[in-house]
Design a protein around this nucleic acid. Sequence first.
DNA 1: GCCTGACATTAACTTATGTTATACTATGCA
DNA 2: TGCATAGTATAACATAAGTTAATGTCAGGC
Lengths: 250, 250
Amino acid sequence: MQKGIATDFKPAETSSPLVRKLGALCLLSEEEIDFLEGLQNNTLKVDRGLDFIEEGGDLRTTFIVIEGWAARYCLLSDGRRQILSYALPGDILGLHVNFRATATYSASALTPLKLAAVDPRRIIEISQKFPIIASGLSWCTAREYAILGDQAIRLGRLSARQRLAHLFLELWHRLNLLKSNNDNWLEIPMTQRDLADTLGMSLVHTNRSLKSLRDVDLISVTKNQVRLNDIKALIELSEFNAEHLREFRV
Amino acid sequence: MQKGIATDFKPAETSSPLVRKLGALCLLSEEEIDFLEGLQNNTLKVDRGLDFIEEGGDLRTTFIVIEGWAARYCLLSDGRRQILSYALPGDILGLHVNFRATATYSASALTPLKLAAVDPRRIIEISQKFPIIASGLSWCTAREYAILGDQAIRLGRLSARQRLAHLFLELWHRLNLLKSNNDNWLEIPMTQRDLADTLGMSLVHTNRSLKSLRDVDLISVTKNQVRLNDIKALIELSEFNAEHLREFRV
DNA sequence: GCCTGACATTAACTTATGTTATACTATGCA
DNA sequence: TGCATAGTATAACATAAGTTAATGTCAGGC
């Protein structure tokens, strides 16, 4: 990626996922990297299964995921749950919290989670002092929005099998931005219950549809791992559009 | 709303919808209003039914809706369509376009449309010069995101009747921010085909479900108008959460 | 004053998906 | 070692929603 220009600034493997994510997109200066790392100094841990954002509650903090997976979701009165999206390492929750906001969703830890808690005022600071980073965050926002749009497409217009394939492809592509996956194994912490609540289906039908994808050998499944056996066929089946995750070049 | 402090700055009825929308949220200075109005000088018209953003195409412009309704949508290969959201007067499309982006959705005019075309660099300018407006745009972003989340809830977890009621309530609330609706009439330009493509249902089932809402007298329908006969019952039926549209106070 | 086309309505039939229930398999833990 | 629990698997049955097709209604063009 543009070797010879500023290779020194290429984020190290040890960088935070956010820096790796933005660094994969545009060249970051050493100063910018330092700032982004400093932003994530104030960390906290969340146990698996615990909520760290509650719908209807006050939200005054922006969270950056450093390690682990989280799920954004809403509950209905009868207990039905709709997972809206997943937050992976490098993802930001509450980027547009203005001083004080009411959370419109809950968020819980799908795995043990390490988060950075950021004062939203520091986000505002960014757009004044670090235009490149600001532009990167803007890209993050547009990307989250596109991801949620894809979720709507899955829920509105795809069949059960298509939904599963489409979701797996999305997660696979998102993870590839963080670390280059050599193989097609996808490590996911979600149970079938979680998948069902993500894809708007019943648990039983999720299980059935997974089996039917296994039966035609499109995927293989082991404990918390999915192997995408034929990416091309999966893309075709599910009408997945990888462009939605790419979004922009400076 | 905080009478006596700066009532002179209260946006006039003749203001642009964006100014009315942000003005309903926080006090804008005369300078801020002037800037926002100036932003919308470069207008264009779009005929009903025409696309002004095309998925996959280059997007270098931010659009502000001044008059009319637009729909954001994606098409699948077999022609199925999923409408993701509606843009009403005062709404912004492509707020997070960074210099050059690929559109992840198409947008078309549901009515004759008047748009302002804004250079995205002017948006960046805002965060440096007008913190209040920047904060307002941030609120718009969070709100759009919450609206899309609600769309996912509709598609994922609500029945056909619930989806319809939920959508009507959303649109009713959003319109109320622009002009105080005295009655419960909702003027919508969408056909049943559009509603079906929004709610992930077939046209026939949309019609059936509308009828069933009419039959229990929850709504009345005439040409392009829906009357919400019992807001409270509709909210209860559809699990609508108006908080999602409110979002923050400075 | 009659076509035409876009939109709405309704019926009959099919299918994908939901529901309920039971069994199976790990894993942690007392 | 055995029990409890969370997760997975499958079958049998119920139902919401899709599909196809026919009919109705209204507005605009000629």
